[in-house]
């Protein structure tokens, strides 16, 4: 039996569906649930464009079999802004620091950045760079990404 019924939370809403055991979480999000913020850049865990949170931790959804998220809480970029569309401070910081160009890696960068801040890996720029290195950006927005994460981490620490 390769078809499996799974139930999980996606951006605070319950999702029930039958998945093939082979399907990745990334493909299920994109091709079944029309939740396309997570992007496919390699499908091999080598770029970070598909980064989402499972139970609050960042993971690559391309190497997560969809069956494994049964009973868990998945958050994608679509679940980051507030209910009325107000941006999360990190999203705003990405805009303010122009931490993006083509935007394709941006959802993954932001999901990774949110976790980086939560994990506390923001002591200095070197640590931010290291802990944001799992997200490739071919346009070359790394300087802005570091600035956005640093700025948001400091604001949150100040609260």
């Amino acid at each position: 039996m390769n078809s499996i019924k799974v139930s999980f939370r996606l951006n605070r809403k319950t999702v029930d569906l039958v998945v093939d055991s082979r399907e990745s979480l990334l493909d299920v999000l994109r091709e079944r649930l029309d939740t396309t913020g997570a992007k496919k850049g390699c499908d091999q865990g080598q770029c970070g464009a598909c980064t989402v949170h499972i139970d609050g931790r960042r993971v690559v959804s391309c190497l997560t079999p969809a069956v494994q998220v049964a009973g868990r809480e998945v958050t994608t970029i679509e679940g980051v802004a507030g209910p009325d569309g107000e941006l999360h401070p990190l999203q705003q910081a990405f805009i303010d620091n122009d931490a993006l160009q083509c935007g394709y890696c941006t959802p993954g960068q932001i999901m990774s950045g949110l976790a980086c801040i939560k994990e506390g890996h923001t002591t200095d720029d070197a640590e931010i760079r290291e802990y944001m290195s799992g997200n490739l950006c071919r346009c070359g927005c790394y300087v802005g990404v570091v600035a956005a994460v640093r700025e948001t981490a400091r604001k949150e620490a100040g609260r």
């Binding site: 396309t36 997570a38 999203q91 394709y104």
Partner: peptide, 18 residues
């Protein structure tokens, strides 16, 4: 400013394969 930045940080922007 980058006029399409908001839809890029929210994931709302749809690329071809989206």
């Amino acid at each position: 400013r980058r006029v399409d930045a908001r839809e890029k940080v929210t994931g709302d922007l749809r690329y071809a394969s989206d």
